[in-house]
Design a protein around this nucleic acid. Structure first.
Lengths: 241, 241
DNA sequence: CAACATAAAATTGTATACAATATATAGTTC
DNA sequence: GAACTATATATTGTATACAATTTTATGTTG
């Protein structure tokens, strides 16, 4: 019987182990993260069809692993599936962007208000320090590290609001427009405007002032929404050329 | 004994086709819905371990299909996975319930306020009719059909608020405490209280009064939260016996 | 009998094989 | 040559097989 020395099963054995301990070690989670990053970084353009075999080659995962990762992304709304037609990167029209920002405003403002109410003094200080880092980024045009710094700011905010469900919902919805926002930050003027808004928000948070916090958060998000919508209009215009 | 004699490679050909057109026809979505219902109906108790092979036999799905369905439930927080230890139904402690209701209050109140602002006259009427159905249920102790009737009410509400992302987030979070709420509705007193609160909410919505809507929604959800927390305390007490 | 080490079974993680459907290509007809 | 049909290819949907790990059972030793 079966010595079965055929090509297949002798795969790369244990690439998982090598990944280390702290992070999730399953191929699935690794594949998930890789695909998510690819979409968020804009490597896959919106509307693009995602062929499973190609993704397998790209990530090194088998189809079963890949498909489970795809289900995850689908539930989070990053991709859409149609029977026997595969997955596509979700396209965002203006209406959806408005809906996303409407939801996000509600969630993020609540998070900010709760942060002002519940955060520890240490968290207030940490938030302030993170803001200073962001100021440095803007000043020195360190556009590359701006995203992780901003994510750090939000991480403090979402932790300090003391609601993991809120955090989960927020991180999910933010993913949906993340890549759009990244591209916008190439515009120096928008960077300065955005920073100024975040300074106002931070000041309100440091004073634990719920009214000012709410106002600053809503203003910031409204501004972000308008910028995204404007850039989308530009895209449409470019397509017409 | 296994009543289902679908053991072998003899696949059941096209059970999918039979499902019709409107609904999703894939085995995966069918399996997903079945598992979700089972959890929401309390067939699987919180904390219970879910063995894949058993779920396969229960749903008739193969493991690949089943696992993709499980990923979906996992992303929505209904079940939790641990490497090589499988899935378990997510257990809700008091803190998590508080967090869920805090988030839900925010979302549902926003939805209600937006409904008051944006719903069509037809939707206002539909909401009122649905409330009347609910009144009949409570009056006639039709506890079985109460859940679908309430879901119908919320369906109108979530449609009329004109925000699909908000709807998505809400339906997700509501799932998490759905089974708890169902059990509570066995209590006649709570049914009457809950109905009264919904009457107040509906009245505010019909008048398109945002202030009254907000107040009624928050009051309703706070009351629901307290009821759930109280029942959880009872559960703990019962465990001690 | 308790405690530990070891082996067997069960369960999950991963990879591949087969079936159903959709898309693309080639051929035929007018 | 355009439009339609039939065939071939590609891609997704589904099922099964193999590997890694954990859990349970077994046996040994003090």
């Amino acid at each position: 019987m079966a010595v079965t020395l055929q090509t297949g099963p002798v795969r790369k054995a244990l690439p998982v182990k090598a990944a280390g301990r702290g992070v999730e070690t399953t191929l699935r989670s690794h594949t998930q993260v890789a695909l998510r990053s690819a979409i968020l970084n804009g490597q896959f353009v919106a509307g693009q069809k995602l062929v499973e075999r190609e993704l397998c080659e790209l990530t090194g995962a088998s189809r079963s692993v890949l498909r489970e990762a795809l289900v995850n992304l689908e539930v989070n709304g990053l991709i859409e599936r149609q029977s026997y037609c595969g997955y596509r990167v979700t396209e965002l029209d203006a209406r959806t962007v408005c809906e996303i920002f409407e939801l996000r405003s509600s969630l993020e403002t609540q998070a900010a208000v709760l942060f002002a109410e519940r955060a520890s003094e240490a968290e207030l200080e940490a938030l302030n320090r993170q803001l200073e880092k962001l100021e440095d980024c803007v000043e020195n045009f360190d556009i590359e590290i701006m995203r992780p710094v901003k994510e750090g700011y939000y991480d403090i905010l979402f932790t300090g609001c003391r609601n993991r469900e809120l955090r989960r919902a927020l991180e999910n919805i933010i993913d949906r427009v993340c890549h759009l926002r990244s591209r916008l930050m190439r515009d120096p003027e928008l960077r300065v405007t955005s920073l100024h808004e975040m300074q106002k928000l931070t000041a309100a948070l440091l004073k634990r002032d719920p009214i000012a916090t709410r106002a600053a958060s809503l203003a910031h998000l409204d501004s972000a929404k308008e910028a995204v919508l404007a850039s989308m209009a530009d895209e449409v215009f470019k397509d017409d050329l």
